[in-house]
Amino acid sequence: MTEQIIFYLLAIVVTVFSILAVTSKRIVRSATYLLFVLLATAGLYMLLGYYFLFAVQVSVYAGGIMVLFIMAIFLTHKPGNNVSIKQGWRVRLSLLLSVAGLLLCGEIILNNTIGIVRFAGKEEPTMQQIGTAMLGTGKQQYLLSFEMMSILLLACIVGAILIARKTKTEKNEPNETEL
């Protein structure tokens, strides 16, 4: 009973703030609404008893990515201005796409409810289990994909440094402080 009430509360929060995040005309507010969506999702994990996933959701998405989002928005040109949506066809196309996505996901979930319950009903895995699953090479262990991810992220970081770095010719030119 209590769990159901909490679930519906979180579901309402997720739905309302998702819509708000898309329709809001101020981009910083959109980011904040998205943050609420992510936090409510973390709340759903908490409700299921998956504390590890909860902490990952909060620290990676809410605490990490959203902070980067907000800081990136701050660095853009005039983040406080209201955005007006001019092209109507874009709105219609994205509406169509999201309805299609909803139908697809709903179809999958409806047809596989039993499977979801099977996984959700399990007890929370311990830290040791998660660790060995991430860094093992056996069946249902994910070392390869884990390492692929880290290489991908490393490539991103190297790329970012390459973009941000000053080239040598620029360095030789007198910059403002020298003038």
Binding site: A55, V56, M66, I70
Partner: peptide
């Protein structure tokens, strides 16, 4: 007493910075 106590603490304390960023911007 979560079995991920330390991680939980790190996760929730990272939320505070969003408040500071929003305070500064708004």
């Amino acid at each position: 007493d979560f079995n991920i106590g330390v991680f939980y603490l790190l996760a929730v304390s990272s939320l505070g910075i969003i408040g500071i960023l929003l305070a500064g911007w708004s």
